[in-house]
């Protein structure tokens, strides 16, 4: 475990907790894409299949449980909570996210490190995580006004993946034969997707104006 990875995991944890806190306290999910949350729940469900078979460390198991419980409870809140669900804007959140799932699965069947069910599901979760933010970014473009909690949520998500890239670079130089192109490329694609959001987030922060994304 290196500082980049720990910082990445903590940032990722913070992003999920910010979102849960927002939804739980103000009982609203305005500006949040349910599609992205469903994709993230699927990412964790397919990536943590080894939760009960391979014990790596208490930290690893604990974090996996937290991510699984929080992502599924966010989906539950938006879909079923009697107050929160009313603030879900399904007319705006129209990204056909099923069109993301199939290509990622097919790609995982073709490009993977080993043709086993667990490995393919794990690779699928990597590809899906790279594109899972798209419905949320599209929704932000559409609704244009971003309340600062949602902005912070997306910012923390992007920061977590950027820190993971630093972690991979660090591990590449410090651990012999730590080479995993699939993880690195999908992680890089994911971070690049945030790049333009980061730009506008930073601009709004620098000029101290409300975050606006161009149409």
């Amino acid at each position: 475990m290196n500082i980049f990875r720990l910082a990445g995991d903590m940032t990722h944890l913070a992003s999920v907790l910010v979102l849960l806190l927002k939804i739980h306290t103000i009982k609203s999910c305005a500006g949040i894409s349910l599609k992205t949350q469903e994709l993230y729940a699927l990412v964790f469900a397919t990536r943590y299949l080894d939760l009960f078979t391979d014990y790596i460390s208490l930290y690893n198991t604990l974090m996996k449980l937290i991510f699984l419980v929080s992502s599924f409870s966010i989906v539950w809140y938006i879909r079923h909570h009697k107050i929160v669900r009313r603030s879900y804007d399904k007319d705006q959140d129209t990204f056909r996210h099923y069109f993301l799932v199939l290509p990622c699965f097919l790609l995982a069947l073709v490009i993977n490190e080993k043709f086993t069910v667990k490995e393919i599901m794990w690779t699928f979760s990597l590809y899906l995580e790279a594109v899972a933010i798209l419905p949320q970014l599209v929704l932000l473009q559409r609704t244009r006004n971003i309340d600062n909690l949602t902005g912070q949520y997306v910012f923390l998500l992007g920061a977590y993946r950027s820190l993971y890239i630093l972690n991979w670079i660090y591990r590449y130089f410090t651990e012999p034969h730590y080479v995993h192109w699939i993880t690195w490329i999908s992680g890089l694609v994911q971070t690049l997707l945030y790049a333009d959001f980061f730009y506008y987030y930073f601009q709004s922060w620098k000029n101290n104006v409300k975050l606006e994304l161009p149409a």
Partner: peptide, 10 residues
């Protein structure tokens, strides 16, 4: 068995 080193990440 895939190398543990990779699967230890979240």
């Amino acid at each position: 068995m895939p190398s543990k080193s990779l699967k230890d990440e979240l």
